[in-house]
Amino acid sequence: MKVIVNIQLKNGVLDPQGKAVHHALSSLKFNEVNEVRIGKQIILDINESDKAKAEQRVTTMCDELLANTVIEDYTIEFPAC
């Protein structure tokens, strides 16, 4: 089963990379951009057919390693294959 984990800095935590990219977009005259936030995506292929169990395991993975929950939020998605 494929599982997609999206990790981004929590709201209110300054994202310097996003700010730098926003600045670059502005200098390219993409003035419609209000804000840029950069995160990361981790794609897992796991041996589990039960979606609920998979979600529980991946949540533990996020809390223990994949995300730093002091500054980061994460979402778990199951893409339609």
Binding site: L9, V13, L14, P16, Q17, A20, N68, V70, I71
Partner: peptide, 16 residues
Amino acid sequence: VEAKLLPGAMKRNESV
């Protein structure tokens, strides 16, 4: 900090 022996977290430098 990652091992939670100290509080807080470390981020990318503001200047990148």
